[in-house]
Every structure is written in C-alpha cells, then in structure tokens.
C-alpha cells in the first residue's frame, strides 16, 4: 500500500531532522580527534574541521611521557578497578541478604534501608566534615570507601535475585552450604547479566568522577585523569589572554613545541576512549537497567 503524500513528506522531514541531530552528536567528537591528530601550528590557522590536515602523533607522544599524566592515569585505573569490584560485590551481597525474609534482622534492616534511601546522605559540607573526622580526606580511600555500597544497585540486584528460582539455592543448602557459599557459588554465577550491567555503570561512574578529587583531596599524587584534564582546561581558559607561547608553559609545564589545544584534545581522546570502548557492552544492558529502575516505585 502506497503511503499518502503527507506521510512521505513527514518521513523525509523527520528523517532529515534526526540525521542532523545525530550529526550534531557525533561531530564534536570527530573534531576533537581531528585536532588531536593535526599538527599544532597548522590547527592554529583554522580550517581543520573533520579530518586532520597534517597528521602527527606528536601530542599523544607528549602526554604518554608526561609523568603527571601517567600517574594520574594510574590513579584513575586503580580507583576504577578497586571501586567497581567492591561496590558490585558489596551491593550484591547486601541485596542477597534482603531476599531472606526469615532473617531475624530483616524488618529493622528494611526500615533502615528505606530511611537511608529517601533521607540519607547530606550536603557537601556535612559530608566533608564526616570524611574529615574519619580521616578519609586526602587519602586514596576517599575514592573507595564512601562509594563501597550503592543503595540503588542493591535494589537492582535484589529485583533480579527475587526472580531466580528458589530450588537451586535450596539444593545447595541441603548439601550443607552456608549462605555465604550459596551466594558466591550459586547466586552470583546465575546473575551475570545484572552484575555485568552494574559493573559497567559503576566503572563509568568511577572513571568519570572528578569532583571528589576537587573536594576531598589536595595531594598531587591523588589526582585522577579527569581532574588533571579539568585543571588544564581551567588554566587554559584563565590564561587565554596571555600569548600562546606562555600558554604552552601554563598548560603543561615545559612543553614548547605543541599547541596546548592539540595536547588538550589528545588528553580528551585518551580519557574518553575507555568509555567508547565499553559503550557497546553498556548499551546492550543499560536500557533494561534503567527501565527496571523506573518501575521501582
């Protein structure tokens, strides 16, 4: 059946608008890549829009030998790996206990959980003072311990666990397994899809985090990649009025040859790359994840 003319016009206009929107989502990333790969002096003349005109890996070489950046990358990787593993394990374990209605602490636990979920936490300053009194300020653990448990992930895990057939777990108990064994040997292996989703969410959150570095740490050895990038960005913005040669010094210490913009863009690419790499896996799962979340109420 042929569609009426008005419908076809609608489809064409709609498709064109959506294509334009899609392009506006992709273009900024293409531009960043192009600048990071283009020769710095050439970029400053303008005209580099999509493809690098004079290809060079100079900016990448510079960032990979910069000690500050390498150490920041290591901190980022460390907090991402440790923080993610812990939050996934802890949230899953706590969620598992929430499936045991016979547990004698079940009811008080549930009450505490809901109060925490709706009223818990606090503003920046109360949190800051708490971390200070716990001695977490200016330590690596400020990236890990306060985010060790995520109440939201607990809800997602529990929803999933409740749908698993009871019999499999019962069989383990008959064999004399404790709850701890049942959790690690039976429940967790059966929950790979939800565990994968939450792992990816948690890893992205850890990797992207920069405010905690700003608020709770002062030591240069605790700086993360995102934070270093933020610093370079802020300095580059603040020093815009200074001559370009001086700006180089400001942006990355002693670099004289490369325009800071291409270095900045190279750091942007390096920081974003891990996200883009896990994105296909993430996308497969997250839609389900947030829909379960939105139905929670």
């Amino acid at each position: 059946m042929r569609k009426p003319l008005s419908d076809r016009v609608f489809d064409v206009v709609n498709g064109a608008l959506l294509t334009l929107l899609g392009a506006s989502m992709v273009y900024p990333f293409l531009y960043v890549i192009a600048i990071s790969l283009n020769e710095a002096s050439d970029s400053s003349q303008g005209g580099t829009w999509i493809l690098p005109r004079k290809l060079t890996f100079e900016s990448y070489k510079i960032i990979f030998v910069n000690n500050d950046l390498v150490s920041a990358a290591l901190v980022s990787v460390a907090r991402t790996v440790l923080g993610t593993v812990l939050v996934v394990l802890c949230s899953a374990m706590f969620a598992y206990v929430f499936t045991k209605q016979k547990y004698f602490l079940y009811k008080p636990m549930k009450l505490i959980f809901f109060v925490a979920m709706f009223l818990g936490g606090g503003g920046l300053i109360p949190v800051y003072m708490l971390f200070r009194s716990l001695g977490l300020l200016n330590t690596f653990w400020v990236y890990i311990i306060p985010w060790m448990l995520n109440l939201w992930y607990v809800v997602l895990f529990r929803t999933y666990f409740m749908r698993l057939p009871r019999e499999i777990e019962e069989a383990a108990f008959v064999d004399g397994a404790s709850e701890l064994t049942a959790f690690f040997k039976v429940i967790l292996p059966l929950s790979k899809p939800i565990a994968a989703t939450i792992t990816l969410f948690a890893a992205v959150a850890q990797w992207n985090s920069w405010r905690d570095t700003l608020f709770f740490t002062a030591s240069p050895s605790l700086r993360t990649l995102q934070y270093v990038m933020m610093e370079i960005l802020q300095r580059a913005e603040a020093e815009r009025m200074i001559t370009r040669a001086e700006m180089l010094d400001v942006a990355l210490g002693h670099l004289k040859l490369v325009d800071p913009m291409s270095v900045r863009m190279a750091i942007t690419v390096v920081t974003t790359l891990p996200i883009v790499l896990v994105y296909p896996f993430l996308q497969k799962h997250f839609i389900k994840g947030i829909l379960v979340g939105s139905m929670k109420g």
């Binding site: 706590f94 959980f113 818990g120 606090g122 708490l130």
Partner: peptide, 18 residues
C-alpha cells in the same frame, strides 16, 4: 556476617551526614 558491616556503613555514610 553478610549484612551487619553494611548496616554499619549505612549508619556512618548515610546517617552520619544527616
């Protein structure tokens, strides 16, 4: 063993700031 450490965590990090 599997819940009390997390309850303590909630008391410190969720109720502490309150």
């Amino acid at each position: 063993l599997m819940s009390i450490p997390f309850l303590i965590w909630i008391f410190i990090f969720e109720f502490g700031p309150m």
